[in-house]
Design a protein around this nucleic acid. Structure first.
Lengths: 223, 223
DNA sequence: TGTAAAATGTGGTTATAACCACATACTTAT
DNA sequence: ATAAGTATGTGGTTATAACCACATTTTACA
């Protein structure tokens, strides 16, 4: 295991060599190899270990009861998966973690007695804080997306999304980090329908848009 | 401040009296009163403090640029809000936190130098671990909901949801914790449309359902 | 046990978004 | 500058879900 690289990951960030050693030992770190398409963690099972991808790539996928497969995300080297399931007790995985190609994964036992409890060593605090950072970052993205996709109409979603960007930038004129197709995917709508709706919103005097540059027009009547 | 009660909250759970004192001091804990409908945290701003509701109730709401208001959740005594924004740096609030009625809130400075960094005291470890637990719990709910509402068709959402429940219970026959209206709200669809679709799924031989009791029927052809 | 109230289901209509087939604009490389 | 490729917009059609108005079933309780 390459300590230099490990110390750069979000999980072990900020640790000294000796702390890293202590952490790896306490977590029962085990490097494992998986063949392409080998299942690392099975949906329906529980785990007290999370995975840190060292080489290759891991995909998170769902296979519903009737056999439909959905790929939810790809985990790149340096990133972790299943961390939530490892820490929250009795939470059955809703997804499979599968090696996308031949991959090396570091399995870390952070569940139950892993992180929590016991002594107040510095590595433990750093590790917990790092995990907290990962979790909250994810949280922010998830709640944002949930908020932006909960309106039923395309217009509602566009408004929710643009409002958020406007708040973040503190301005009524801004660039968004998506092209039309990406925005459509993010908002979970069809691209051409999105284009149409944005067109209508322009006509209705709500905004101007050109490519990924938007300007919000607050109608005087809304005061 | 009632220490007995504080020690029962998710935030301070597991702490001894002296640890609680140290934590409260280090976090600059400040009890504040808010009148009904007073805004505690403004959308668009940033905060390094989270709120712990002591008395009353806090609602999280969104007001988009065009003036539409959406109430997203209610925070009860013993629960926290804005914790994500407090910890993730430079994250502008996308929502307002508003006192739902006259309320007492304990503001806790957990941002930046608050939790992370510094010494490895036991209270710090416990607090961080508690926050991690809160965050991951939320995470699990958010990602579940996101997964269940991402299919565009009602049938797709029902399948995604029932698959998850089936995995969690490890059985193809189970009760769900929702009535029809609640399930419709959760899946973000209209109730009668949901009833219709469940009816069709019965006809198509995918499942049987009676009230909140479901049984999944895997068709032989899917093998 | 009868009645009111709540929950669930169903038919019909309408609004909306997906879908398809292109037209137009914008970008890039030669 | 032109051609090819990519991104974006638009019209028309169809599928789907929201919506409305009730019918039916289940539950609560007087």
């Amino acid at each position: 295991m390459d300590k230099k690289k490990l110390k750069k990951t979000v999980v072990f960030r900020g640790m000294e060599d000796d702390e890293l050693d202590a952490a790896l030992a306490a977590l029962g770190a085990a490097e494992r190899k998986y063949a392409k398409d080998e299942v690392i963690l099975h949906a329906g099972s529980t785990t007290d270990m999370m995975g840190l991808v060292l080489e290759g790539s891991v995909r998170i996928e769902s296979n519903d009861i009737w056999g439909n497969r959905t790929i939810l995300s790809h985990i790149a080297p340096g990133q972790v998966f299943a961390e939530t399931y490892a820490i929250v007790e009795n939470a059955a995985l809703l997804v499979d973690a599968v090696a996308n190609r031949e991959s090396k994964v570091l399995m870390l036992g952070i569940g139950s007695a892993g992180i929590l409890g016991h002594d107040a060593s510095l590595w433990r605090l750093k590790l917990t804080a790092n995990m907290l950072s990962i979790s909250m970052q994810k949280n922010l993205m998830l709640s944002g997306r949930s908020f932006h996709t909960s309106p039923k109409s395309i217009r509602g979603r566009v408004m929710a999304y643009l409002s958020s960007v406007s708040l973040q930038t503190g301005s009524d004129e801004f660039d968004i980090p998506f092209d039309r197709q990406q925005l459509a995917d993010y908002l979970n709508v069809e691209r051409t329908a999105l284009s149409k709706e944005i067109g209508k919103m322009k006509q209705d005097g709500m905004l101007t848009a050109r490519k990924n540059h938007f300007r919000i027009l607050k109608s005087e009547t809304s005061l």
